[in-house]
Design a protein around this nucleic acid. Structure first.
Lengths: 188, 188
DNA sequence: ACAGTCATGTAACACGTTACATGATTTG
DNA sequence: CAAATCATGTAACGTGTTACATGACTGT
């Protein structure tokens, strides 16, 4: 059924639909209003992607209850069971250390979507893997910085930028692990 | 002649060729060996892109001097005058504050390529604009953080990540401005 | 009624990825 | 000489972008 693997974009859309059923227009607004809005999907990308998810049996258009007749022309999608399973599987996808820098934004999206899908331990495990991957990437950058035979300054400065940014990322992960580890999710 | 504007990838290739003449394979190795290697261009992207640059009259295949007969099968590109001009124009492209986060990596590449093409004042101007754009983006993120009516924690934590990362970026820009501003490029 | 937003969709186009193909040159 | 690397290229395929089209609903 679900033949080829999904695009990153499709995975994000599926995740958003899993968080709460939504129409294409809702999703568009979501991208526009959240800090995720660094990327504004076009209609030509959004609607075909949703149709692909539907074709693969991962989402389905909800029956529009209530008005029955009116409020037409609106396709609100909800995940199927296969869709929920695919989403969970995506959330559990191990972090590839070799591409952690490229995929960092995507990992952050996954982190957000984990909140109500994962146990605290699972989240901590994810953050631990993320920290490891970031540390490895930083170590790699440091090796580049250790071999500066050229007389140019800008390449080294750009490298410093990468180091500063990914160290901030790593520190963030550490801080979140500490916060989640100590704070009980108890209450209620 | 140079009809439509170039892809980011094409601009980077042109910039590399402007730094020093290179063949497609050389460029591939450049991506593989430098910290820029978060992106590994495939042959199917690299060679057609170079041909497009050639078609647009921005680069030309150098005549292979020396061996004449041997060392065939190698197309070493050098920039044409139109290519050098296009590259300088790209380096001078103003920073779009609305997309500074998305384009940050590209701006870093531009910063590296500016070293031998810009005066110190031009570089400082670029860094100043970059700082402004980053500060504006950070302020925007802070506004998002100021309106947390939901009970979820992860979205706010992800926002903290963005703040930490872009603040690091902003601090880097400030540090580089200070370093370049005080240090004389004199010597020699 | 009319404009603006809501809401979905399609067509042309360009680009990147994957995978494959092809020879020349070097290395063991 | 065989195998690996150098070096360039092509074809199928999927996808995103831009731009356009369409129709219903809302507010004035």
């Amino acid at each position: 059924m679900a033949a080829h693997q999904l695009t990153a974009f499709e995975h994000v859309l599926l995740g958003l639909v899993c968080l709460s059923p939504a129409s294409g227009y809702d999703l568009k607004r979501t991208f526009a209003s959240t800090p995720m809005g660094v990327y504004q999907p076009s209609s030509g990308a959004l609607y075909p992607a949703l149709r692909r998810l539907e074709t693969k049996g991962l989402v389905r258009a909800m029956a529009l209850d209530g008005a029955g007749e009116s409020a037409r022309r609106r396709r609100v999608y909800e995940p199927t069971e296969a869709g929920s399973a695919a989403h969970m599987s995506w959330l559990r996808t191990p972090i590839e250390p070799s591409t952690v820098a490229r995929d960092l934004g995507l990992h952050l999206v996954r982190f957000v979507m984990m909140e109500h899908a994962f146990s605290r331990d699972e989240v901590l495990g994810f953050l631990h893997d993320l920290s490891d991957a970031l540390a490895a990437f930083i170590a790699q950058l440091e090796q580049h910085a250790a071999v500066p035979p050229v007389g140019d300054r800008h390449p080294l400065l750009a490298l410093d930028h990468g180091l500063a940014v990914y160290r901030a990322s790593l520190e963030w992960a550490g801080g979140v692990m500490a916060a989640l580890g100590t704070a009980p999710n108890a209450s209620s």
